[in-house]
Amino acid sequence: MDGVEVDLGSLSCADVRPVLQEETEEDLNERIRRAVEFLVHGLFTLPEQNSERKSLRELPTATTVVPRAKPIPKEKPLTKWQKFAKSRGIKKRKRDKFTWDEARGEFRPIHGYRSINDERDQAVMPHDPSLAPGESPFDRLKEGKRKRIENNRKNQERNKRTLSKGQISALPLKNEARSKYLDKYAKVAAISTSSLGKHGEKNEVKSKNSSVKGIRKKKIIPVGAERERTFRAVNDVLKNI
């Protein structure tokens, strides 16, 4: 139809012909009706999706781009183990929590408290020749467990740190105008003193000031020199004529 654009994805239509002064309200209402009818017909011609709900239609992607409310979320960075597993192609698989214990004749957990192979549960242990004289094998087991827990906690904290680092870098909004504004004030603040530079060391100030544009101190020209310079310029011009 003439002048009507339809965007089914955003459920909108637009009659782009400009509204003229001589158009009455009836004319406008007819234009609105025609545009809406065009949109509705577009929706009715979309293919059916679901045989159970016949009125449901899948919309195509919208052509009108509307700004988001919040930035696109960043992917969570992989933990060290996840990276390693990916490089080796290790996949997580589901395992049972309980298993049949032949000796006791009941189901027992594979890991943790009351687990099937709990080393701490043993009353007697075979002799280990690597043990120092006087060292208890039970104490050694306990120590090993403590160390493993500590190690694991360290790894957790490291992963947390790297993860939060990724998030922080995602947050600040790039606003160039604002950062320039900040830069300017930072530079001014660096060279500002309460006496407006009267009592400060001038050399030091100068070196810092070199990058600041537009606030350089103007040279004071003596009156006679200025007069001479103007006359010279005028003479130069007149000579050419």
Binding site: S10, L11, S12, C13, A14, D15, V16, R17, P18, V19, L28, R31, I32, A35, V36, L39, V40
Partner: peptide, 13 residues
Amino acid sequence: MKPLVCFIGDFES
């Protein structure tokens, strides 16, 4: 909940 939206006039100018 889901209104249609219709624009009339030369908004693109």
